[in-house]
């Protein structure tokens, strides 16, 4: 193991002060499920490791007016066991339940999953589908709130400045009647990196037309994102099987436009289409 100094701040202010001085040379540790392997493999070489789970306001799940606030050091297990989240965002909870195994879920945090920005991160696509926003703080600029969709620039790279800490994740409540689904495909049933995952949010109006649809595949593109073109194809229309079939083709095209053809594309195209069709069918028969 390489050498570094471990700093245990006693408050948010303390942490922000430290990062204002040493941000460039520091890495923030929450659960450490990504950071520790990175340190061991010497992929990262920080001079300081800043430990934040001990800071009290950083964890927990709260309902504030029309949104939910999730503390960045909230573990996946805490998310899975939260009644608030299970009632309001079942797809997000399912994505948290699909992370690693019990030990990883007990340590790993939602904030870490975002900040690490892995293309295969399990909860990122679900958070994107739910329109998640991030609250960032620094000593210099105070608080700012940015959409999650703008936060991840490329694999393992976020727009967070070196003196900033992610201090909260904000999710707006969904409109009543919104249905959601999450599915993960891995090489085994636990401790598996996602081969592919898919989050869908769907709401129909009284005429049974699609009034809202969010489609976010994960682990198939460098950065997960909503598939706008496919969403627009279905918006305002009745989700008939032929239309869903056509939309599944567009969905695969949208993916390939981003990734280009790779060795895995011949697998991912038909399987993404299949999973999309299967999940749409499930959501429509609810």
């Amino acid at each position: 193991m390489q050498r570094f100094q471990f700093y245990n701040p006693c408050s948010v202010e303390d942490a922000l002060n430290f990062l204002a001085e040493q941000g460039e040379r520091s890495k923030i540790i929450a659960g450490g499920t990504d950071l520790i392997p990175g340190l061991r493999l010497e992929e990262i070489r920080p001079d300081f490791v800043l430990n934040i789970p001990e800071i009290n306001p950083f964890s927990g799940i709260k309902e504030i007016d029309h949104s939910f606030w999730i503390g960045p050091t909230t573990t996946f297990t805490e998310m899975v066991e939260s009644n608030l989240l299970s009632c309001s965002f079942p797809a997000l909870v399912r994505s948290a339940a699909s992370v690693g195994g019990p030990q990883i879920r007990n340590r790993g945090t939602i904030g870490g999953n975002i900040a690490n920005a892995s293309p295969a991160a399990d909860v990122l696509p679900a958070l994107l589908a739910h329109g998640g926003e991030l609250e960032l703080q620094s000593k210099r600029n105070g608080k700012r709130i940015i959409p999650l969709a703008e936060a991840i620039l490329s694999p393992y790279k976020t727009c967070f400045r070196s003196d900033e800490i992610l201090t909260g994740i904000i999710l707006k409540k969904l409109e009543p009647g919104t249905r959601s689904a999450f599915e993960k495909l891995g090489r085994r049933k636990a401790m598996a990196r996602a081969r592919m995952n898919l989050t869908l949010l769907l709401r129909l109006n009284h005429r049974e037309e699609v009034s809202e649809l969010r489609i976010v595949p994960g682990a198939v593109m460098p950065v997960a994102k909503r598939m706008d073109r496919t969403e627009r194809m279905l918006l305002g229309k009745k989700p008939e099987p032929l239309l869903i079939e056509a939309a599944s083709k567009t969905l695969a095209e949208e993916m390939v436009e981003v990734t280009g053809a790779r060795w895995s594309t011949e697998y991912k195209i038909p399987v993404l289409k299949n999973i999309f069709k299967r999940m749409m069918k499930q959501l429509l028969t609810v």
Binding site: G101, R187, R188, K189, A190, M191, A192, R193
Partner: peptide
Amino acid sequence: LGEYMIPTSMD
């Protein structure tokens, strides 16, 4: 063993 996939107890 993160890349070499042996079955877990779930499998």
